[in-house]
């Protein structure tokens, strides 16, 4: 029942890796925007991760994570050939993809990997895809090569100016929106402050803005409501109603608070794990 890791590629040493998992049933149905819930071992916690790519013929899916706590640290400690206890999916609603012209796909951090899957979907239906990606520094920029292979245009920014434009990706986004009136949708996947900033940037332009949310989940199948988010004043379950929502309607402050609900326990778990590894 366990899911084998076929390949592991370190993207940022000790922090972020790309895992290729043998999961034929999930790969057969995975579409851009879907996520999985995994549990690394039999005492592990269920955590959601967005599917960054799927190959139905090989029966594989790709996930990319950032080490933030114990579960992701355990993942980072695994190697090709190891098995993940439980992988469940594909979950959530797939991205709504329609042909409409130019789409700007904004990605930050590991969110670039998930965004690239969505961008691919837009290319497939014939949309013109502009990838806009940002990181603190050049060596932290992920999936540039993959995106470049199919996107029509790539915009890059780094906070320290080590690569692309110095500054935030939202500045590139604003300029692009000012120049190009054919943009019909902006998609943003990344850290919550980035998605919030993207939504603020696009608001004056009235461009449809889709964000992929990452709240805490337990079952991921609509049974518990841990992942509830306020969207336009209504409560939604990100696991079954999302995870993608209209960025102009999401209550990001609430999302940030809810993401921090277990910070103290997460810290304890992470520290104990760190000590045990020494």
């Amino acid at each position: 029942m366990a899911t084998p890791i076929l390949d592991k590629e370190s993207l940022i040493p000790g922090k972020t890796s790309k895992l290729v998992l043998h999961a034929p049933e999930i790969a057969a149905k995975a579409r851009p925007g879907h996520f999985i819930i995994l549990r690394t071992h039999d005492k592990g916690e269920r955590i959601p991760l967005t599917i960054a790519d799927a190959d139905p013929e090989r029966g594989t899916i790709i996930i990319v994570y950032l080490v933030l706590g114990k579960s992701t640290a355990v993942l980072e400690g695994m190697a090709a050939g190891d098995e993940i206890s439980d992988v469940c999916g594909p979950l959530g609603r797939p991205t709504h993809i329609e042909k409409g012209g130019t789409v700007i796909c904004v990605g930050g951090g590991t969110g670039i990997a998930a965004m690239h899957h969505i961008a691919k979907g837009h290319v497939r239906v014939g949309n013109r895809v502009v990838g806009a990606i940002g990181a603190r520094s050049k060596n932290l920029l992920l999936f540039e090569k993959e995106l470049t292979s199919f996107a029509d245009e790539i915009l890059i920014s780094t906070d320290d100016g080590s690569y692309g434009r110095k500054g935030l990706v939202t500045e590139l986004l604003r300029e692009k929106l000012e120049q190009d009136g054919s943009v019909f949708e902006v998609v943003a996947v990344g850290p919550v402050p980035m998605m919030e900033a993207v939504a603020q940037t696009t608001r004056p332009f009235g461009v449809r803005t889709t964000v992929s949310l990452n709240p805490i989940m337990v079952d991921g199948i609509g049974m518990c409501g841990a992942c509830r988010v306020s969207v336009g004043g209504q409560t939604k379950f990100a696991c079954v109603d999302g995870p993608e929502f209209d960025g102009h309607l999401v209550d990001f402050d609430e999302l940030k608070r809810r993401l921090a609900a277990y910070r103290a326990q997460e810290q304890i778990s992470f520290e104990l794990y760190g000590k045990a590894q020494q």
């Binding site: 916690e45 337990v218 079952d219 049974m223 518990c224 409501g225 326990q265 778990s269």
Partner: peptide, 23 residues
Amino acid sequence: SANEYLTRVNLGRAYAFPEYDTP
């Protein structure tokens, strides 16, 4: 929800945190 609280404690064995990871 009671579902979340109970699922964390029962299925996730949160009563044995941090031996089990689910809080």
